[in-house]
Amino acid sequence: MLITNDANYELLPLGDSAVIIRLGDGIDEATHRKVGALTAYLEEHPFAGMIECVPAFASAAIHYDPVAVKKSRVFSESIHATIYETVCSRLQLILSAAELSGADTDRRTIEIPVCYGGEFGPDLSFVAAHNGLSEEEVVAIHTSASYLVYMLGFAPGFPYLGGMSERIAAPRRQSPRTVIPQGSVGIAGGQTGVYPVATPGGWQLIGRTPLELFSPREAVPSLLRSGDSVRFKPITKEQYNLYLEGAL
């Protein structure tokens, strides 16, 4: 996969200290791979003054320190340009480089064990009834797909997953729960997700994972990263407890 110099992107200022690069306008794997390739490249080769790169569905925001960018200007860069223009020309150089490749082969697959239904999935019966399925069928459909982590956001380590079957889609709850426990697996509309930390929310809860998706003390605090592939695996309550004790 290449990002060629066909200027198939848009650069927009996000204020005076960040720029957004839009590489598409929808949620699709091709755009996602471009965003992933650009993010990976910038992490490996940050320009002077770059603070961080935050990828989303079809874009990435690059936060920078205007003073550091100004101080790092080289002879070939105009001193009359604005900082934003300097950042844009540095990004355009990167975006026109042909060696930006987002090989699909290095995608990680993360298996997430989930104890479905019962106390952990109080809304499993609702999701089943809503779609005219049995609870077992909902679990079978949920565990049969492979999901792509399009981006992380909303809460620390929270993945926006793509790839859920429309056959198990379900509307949000009428009144949101004040606390959704850590590890809860839910469905909202055509989306599924896992809550890495306890938070309020209106998703239909179908199960819970014993895995810790977010550990602030780790160098990489999030189990999931943008671009990962996720599969859910059904486990029993006994296995859930064994996971928590570290025996599995």
Binding site: L14, G15, S17, A18, I20, D25, G26, I27, V54, P55, A56, F57, A58, S59, A60, A61, H63, M151, G153, Y160
Partner: peptide
């Protein structure tokens, strides 16, 4: 809107 990164002061 597609979710997209925000900044301080957005």
């Amino acid at each position: 809107m597609l979710s997209e990164a925000v900044a301080n002061g957005t």
